[in-house]
Write a protein that binds this DNA or RNA. Structure first.
Lengths: 115, 115
DNA sequence: CTCTTGATAAAGCATCTGCTTGAGTAATCC
DNA sequence: GGATTACTCAAGCAGATGCTTTATCAAGAG
């Protein structure tokens, strides 16, 4: 049986990924760890705003922040992405199954006994 | 090369999937087509609200509405889910690659020449 | 101890979102 | 034609979101 995924967690995950700055941060963290300051550098917004974005990613489990001297290194927690992917894949699987059934019925109709 | 996915489309897709009523509608449409009224029936909200939810799913390409007599049958457009899945998978792939490189380096260090 | 660096916390604000109610429309029924 | 069904359109509102500015804090550097 497929894993049942918590609705509230999915709300938070998809909402987090609905912002392109946050998606960009996730993509960059999938390449290497980075501090809040390093993550903030490329964007035309304050460090505070980026820190808030990281907070959103942290609350939904996608990113974790630790401490090293004055900095807060962030790293991706990729198993959290699992929840989103499996929800989507489940919907696609159901849809593909339905299409298969429809095709099978159509094939039986065309195949000979069309009284 | 991996397919490059449009940022605005991803914004809309993830935002659409961040609402559980809309995710539920997608899940139900992955089982069978349904009219706006049929989709609205189970929820404790007005038909108008559900029609608006379907509008959101329609604008991001996940669902399409047609006409049949007075009703508006809705159906899922599953290839749109592709965009979301491939973005997520790309991040995960990069992360897995990085972990492999780290493990390989660690193995080389442990393996003999640790001068 | 003071100054700087790298960050978080809190408050304020414009905009967006999810929902409502009320009105309008197209197709069907009588 | 008028009433009914299945919806859409539009306005309004409370609460969430993305950003800002100001203030605060914790860890070195001098």
């Amino acid at each position: 049986m497929a894993v049942t995924i918590d609705d509230e967690r999915l709300d938070a995950m998809f909402a987090a990924l609905a912002d392109r700055t946050r998606r960009d941060i996730v993509a960059r963290l999938s390449e290497r760890e980075a501090t809040v300051g390093e993550l903030a550098a490329p964007y035309a917004m304050t460090l505070q705003a980026v820190s808030q974005h990281i907070g959103v990613l942290e609350r939904c489990g996608l990113v974790s922040r630790s401490r090293h001297r004055q900095t807060r290194p962030c790293r991706l927690e990729p198993q959290a992405l699992e929840a989103a992917v499996s929800w989507i894949e489940e919907s696609r699987r159901a849809w593909a199954e339905r299409m298969d059934r429809l095709e099978a019925r159509l094939a039986r109709l065309q195949d000979g006994q069309q009284r």
